[in-house]
């Protein structure tokens, strides 16, 4: 009988092997085939939302069930994965998902962007430029960029099919009319290859330009909404804007208090209850690498 006080997930199996109670990378092979078909279709039609039969995963919706399924379908034993949550490798969500794949797939893990063959991300794109051969998997809460303006799914599908995207600009118009500028700061809509309008998941709009002509494969998974979409390498991704209110990147005006970077996306950290604060890089790996390099 097991000890009820033991709440650990059990021992991590030896490196290079995985927990034999599970199929490799948790999902069964049929499910992975189904997801791969959806991924291939998504890659063939960049920006188009492909419906897929999302499975129940051993984690709640909102924790990346879509991303985990996409990662699971892509993993091979040689992979080296990195998981980030808002740019950080060491938050609960990132650690849990990394451990999940360590145990069920036995793959190597890393915090270094450059070493990873597959990166699963929640709401950031790493600062280190991605390269050919890498896969970036996004966790997506709401894949439909038109959702908040047009609640009917039948209608939004038709709008995508017929390229009726005026409504997207209505949203931006509303931004400018109430704030004087486009105040949408994350999940900023993009046009893919001048065809589909796509929600890039809630990444800050600072990251939007990184999607354009990116050498890596970018895959998007929405578990609860059961949608997969994708950007093959070197795809044109343009942020929507007005001629007289062009798209601008947005970052906190400051430098990283740890590594001194002045061109990265910064998080604000409150230091005490008297209003002292500092900015640090949201991308922990990028920041740590810069500090190491500076020390050498």
């Amino acid at each position: 009988m097991t000890d009820p006080s033991d709440t650990s997930l059990g021992d991590t199996p030896p490196e290079g092997t995985h927990d034999q109670d599970y199929n490799f990378a948790y999902l069964d092979e049929q499910t992975k085939r189904m997801i791969r078909r959806a991924l291939l279709k998504g890659l063939a039609i960049p920006g188009y939302q492909v419906p897929f039969a999302s499975r129940e995963m051993p984690m709640p919706y909102g924790w990346g069930t879509g991303g985990v399924q996409v990662t699971s379908a892509c993993l091979v034993p040689d992979d080296c994965i990195k998981v980030i949550d808002q740019g950080a490798d060491d938050t609960t969500n990132a650690v849990s998902i990394r451990k999940f794949f360590e145990r069920t797939a036995g793959v190597r893990t890393t915090e270094k962007t450059g070493e990873a063959s597959l990166i699963q991300t929640r709401h950031r794109i790493p600062e280190t430029p991605l390269e050919e051969g890498q896969i970036l998997v996004y966790q997506v809460p709401i894949p439909e960029p038109l959702r908040f303006l047009e609640p009917r799914e039948t209608e939004t599908r038709k709008m995508h099919a017929l390229e009726e995207y005026g409504l997207m600009h209505v949203k931006l118009y509303e931004d400018i009319s109430s704030h004087g500028h486009i105040s949408t700061a994350y999940a900023y809509p993009v046009s893919v290859e001048e065809r589909y309008v796509m929600d890039p998941s809630p990444i800050p709009k600072f990251d939007n330009p990184k999607m354009h002509q990116c050498p890596a494969v970018q895959l998007f998974g929405a578990g609860r909404e059961q949608r997969i979409y994708a950007l093959p390498p070197y795809t044109d991704v343009v942020s929507l804007d007005f001629e007289d209110h062009p798209f601008t990147r947005l970052r906190n005006d400051g430098v990283c208090g740890l590594c001194g970077a002045d061109d990265t996306y910064l998080d604000e950290v409150i230091m005490d209850d008297e209003g002292t604060r500092m900015f640090v890089c949201s991308d922990t790996d990028y920041c740590a690498t810069r500090i190491e390099e500076a020390a050498e």
Binding site: L149, G166, H169, E174, S178, E243, D244, H245
Partner: peptide, 25 residues
Amino acid sequence: RMAVSAGGNIGERLMNIGARHYGDI
């Protein structure tokens, strides 16, 4: 569209047919 301002309501049809200049709209 009840959740969109009066200006946005009028401008929608313009944006639908490709108007992309906020000031003009």
